[in-house]
């Protein structure tokens, strides 16, 4: 082998970077978050649907409220009516049921490195402790 020193060094660095998730997680665990739902009953749609699609629902809501002044959402699953609202108090907004943002929304979002910028304008729910 020629230039073995340089080439082996390069290979070690490459393999090190590629396998970083493995050796960087030694002793780590899956750590799946368990968002705390502090409300009984059902969500806007089924829980499985919400887990994957809640951001799209919010997107639809936002557009239809701001552009068409259409403020009522009828659940496809349950047929019940909801106010299309992220965080307005006094209505059935996401945060009126999920008032524990830190234990609920953030539990998942921190796990997957999403930081919705919505709260730059919308009011975060006050934790009632």
């Amino acid at each position: 082998m020629y230039d073995a020193g340089k080439i082996i060094t390069g290979l070690v660095i490459f393999v090190g970077i590629v396998t970083y998730p493995i050796w960087g997680s030694l002793g780590g665990s899956v750590n799946m978050p368990e968002p705390v739902v502090n409300k009984s009953g059902t969500c806007v749609e089924s829980a499985e649907y919400m887990r994957a699609n809640h951001m799209q629902i919010l997107d639809e809501w936002r557009d239809s409220v701001v552009r068409d002044n259409d403020r009522v959402y009828t659940s496809q699953q349950y047929g019940t009516k909801f106010d299309k609202s992220l965080s307005t108090t006094g209505k059935t907004s996401c945060t009126s049921c999920h008032s524990n943002k830190e234990e609920f929304c953030d539990a998942c979002h921190d796990y997957t490195a999403v930081a919705p910028y919505c709260w730059e304008c919308h009011i975060e729910p006050k934790e009632e402790i």
Partner: peptide
């Protein structure tokens, strides 16, 4: 849309050698 939290659990299972299939 897919459930990214469950997918991360699967991926974490792979790298920590505790495979799970949520």
């Amino acid at each position: 849309r897919v459930d990214v939290v469950n997918i991360k659990a699967l991926a974490r299972g792979l790298v920590t050698f505790q495979p799970t299939i949520p």
